[in-house]
Design a protein around this nucleic acid. Structure first.
Length: 256
DNA sequence: ATGGCGCTTCGCAAGCGA
């Protein structure tokens, strides 16, 4: 089965991209970030017509997350129960024998800004909650836009980015703390092309020059690591007209 | 050093993203 994470940067604008990509790519679970839609505006009918079970949690203008699944979703949880948050950034659901968490980690804006402090606190609370989720659900997959490039090889030019938001030592430590509860970055289980990224700035021809960051990740608990046979980034939709600045990341799991 | 682009909104400029 295939699990996907994709920050669509407005589901309103990108619905046609999403539907096209889903037609071209037979997958089972899709975690979406930055829907930027209140729940009353969510395109539920279009996605159900395409054969998806859907859970979503949105707000006006910013953030918003959704999970699409070929199988029914159960035990849907909005937000981190340990961290009251007006911003809609987390959705969890049980799908078959998997517990799936869709996460949109705060951007952080600039190191030491108010938003950066929020990001670090938010990630620490996520870690605490994921430790509990993992105890309840050994088959845990956490997919999302983490807004952290874990290592220098995930950054097109580490010298330019040194100390900046997305790569700062405290953000990388907060990301490592997520792994330390018992999760693994599935992308690095496998040989990967050099200069693999999942986001490129719209400006300055960053995509054409492949000057990006790898900030969208699929983290797997140990039993799922044992089942994981591939993790890839699909750059194709970034080349379509009016693309999201992020591109899908796909993990493949063998049946238990 | 700056801005470049794109999306959003009680739009016509500004906040935010990354």
């Amino acid at each position: 089965m295939k699990l996907v994470t994709w920050n669509v940067n407005s589901l309103n604008v990108r619905l046609s991209h999403l539907l096209r990509w889903l037609e071209e790519n037979p997958v089972d679970v899709v975690c979406i970030q930055e829907t930027k839609l209140t729940d009353d505006k969510f395109p539920l009918a279009a996605l159900e017509a395409a054969g998806w079970h859907v859970a979503f949690s949105g707000q006006k203008t910013y953030n918003g997350v959704a999970i699409l699944s070929r199988q029914p979703l159960a035990d849907v949880v909005r937000n981190n129960p340990r961290y009251p948050d007006e911003q809609q950034r987390i959705l969890a659901a049980t799908i078959g024998d998997l517990r799936v968490v869709c996460a949109y980690v705060p951007n952080g804006q600039a190191v030491d800004s108010e938003k950066y402090v929020y990001k670090l606190g938010w990630m620490a609370a996520l870690r605490d909650w994921l430790a509990e989720e993992l105890a309840r659900h050994p088959n845990l997959a956490v997919l999302g836009d983490y807004n952290v490039a874990p290592e220098d090889r995930d950054v097109h030019d580490p010298a330019v980015w040194e100390g900046e938001v997305h790569v700062s030592p405290r953000e990388r430590a907060a990301f490592q703390a997520l792994l330390d509860v018992g999760l693994t970055d599935s992308f690095r289980l496998f040989e990967q092309p050099e200069k693999s990224y999942s986001w490129w700035d719209y400006r300055m021809l960053r995509f054409q020059k492949n000057q990006g960051l790898r900030i969208d990740h699929i983290l797997l608990s140990q039993p799922l690591v044992a089942r994981c046979t591939a993790c890839t980034i699909d750059r194709a939709p970034r080349k379509w007209p009016q693309p999201s600045d992020h591109t899908p990341v796909i993990a493949t799991l063998a049946e238990a």
